[in-house]
Amino acid sequence: MSGFVFAAAIVVPALAFRARWLNAVAAFWTAYVITRPLGASFADWMGVPVARRGLGWGTGLVTLAWAAVIVVLVACLALRRKDVPEPVEAV
C-alpha cells in the first residue's frame, strides 16, 4: 500500500509544475526525493515472504532483476542516442 501512496505523491510535483505553482528545479528535486521511498516500497514488497503479503522473491533475486532492468534501459538509451544533438553544419 505504501508504494501506491508514494506513487501518488510523486504526481503532486508534476501537477504543481504543470499548473505553474512550482518551478522546474523544485519540482525535480521534490520528485527525485520521493523516488527513494517509492522504489524501496516496491522492492520490499517483492522481496518479503508471501506470509507477510509480499511476492517472496528474496532480496537477491529482486536486486538481480532490477539490475538487469536498469542495464537494459541504459543500453537502450545509449543505442538510441536521443540525448545527443545532431551536429550542425557551419554556414
Rank of each mutant, 00 (worst) to 15 (best):
L61K: 14
M46A: 14
R20G: 01
N23I: 00
W21H: 06
L22C: 08
A51D: 09
G60I: 12
I34Y: 00
A27T: 05
W45P: 03
A24S: 14
W21C: 03
R36L: 14
V33I: 09
R18E: 11
A51I: 13
W21E: 04
V62A: 03
W45V: 13
V25I: 13
S41G: 02
G54Q: 07
G60M: 10
G54R: 10
T59V: 13
A51V: 10
T30H: 07
T35K: 03
T35M: 04
A24E: 11
R36M: 15
W29D: 04
N23W: 00
L64Q: 13
P49L: 04
W21M: 06
M46G: 05
A27K: 01
Y32I: 12
N23K: 01
P37N: 03
W45Y: 15
V50Y: 07
A65E: 02
G39M: 05
G58M: 08
G54E: 00
W21T: 02
A26V: 14
T63A: 13
A65Y: 07
G54Y: 06
G47T: 01
T59M: 12
W29Y: 14
W29P: 11
A19G: 05
R53C: 09
L38K: 02
P49C: 08
W57G: 06
V50Q: 10
T30I: 11
V50N: 10
V33D: 02
V50H: 11
A26G: 12
A24T: 14
A24L: 10
L64H: 08
W21G: 05
I34K: 00
A40H: 07
A31Y: 06
R20V: 00
V62N: 01
R36I: 15
F17M: 05
V50I: 15
A27S: 13
W45M: 13
G54N: 08
Y32D: 09
V62D: 02
M46W: 06
P49I: 01
V48L: 11
G58A: 06
R52S: 15
F17P: 04
F17G: 03
F17V: 01
R52V: 13
R20H: 02
P37L: 01
A19I: 06
G58Q: 04
W21N: 04
F42V: 11
V62Y: 00
D44Y: 12
L38T: 08
R20N: 01
F28D: 00
T30K: 02
G54M: 09
S41C: 08
A27D: 06
R20S: 03
A65R: 01
W57T: 04
F42M: 12
W29F: 12
F28E: 00
W21P: 00
P37R: 01
A51Q: 08
A65N: 04
L22M: 14
R52I: 06
G56M: 07
G58L: 06
A43T: 09
A51P: 04
W45L: 15
A40N: 09
A43K: 06
D44T: 15
A65V: 12
W45T: 12
G39T: 04
R36D: 10
V25M: 12
I34V: 07
G58S: 06
F17Y: 10
R52M: 10
L64Y: 08
V25P: 05
L61E: 13
Y32M: 15
R36T: 14
A43E: 03
A65F: 10
A26K: 12
N23Q: 03
A24I: 13
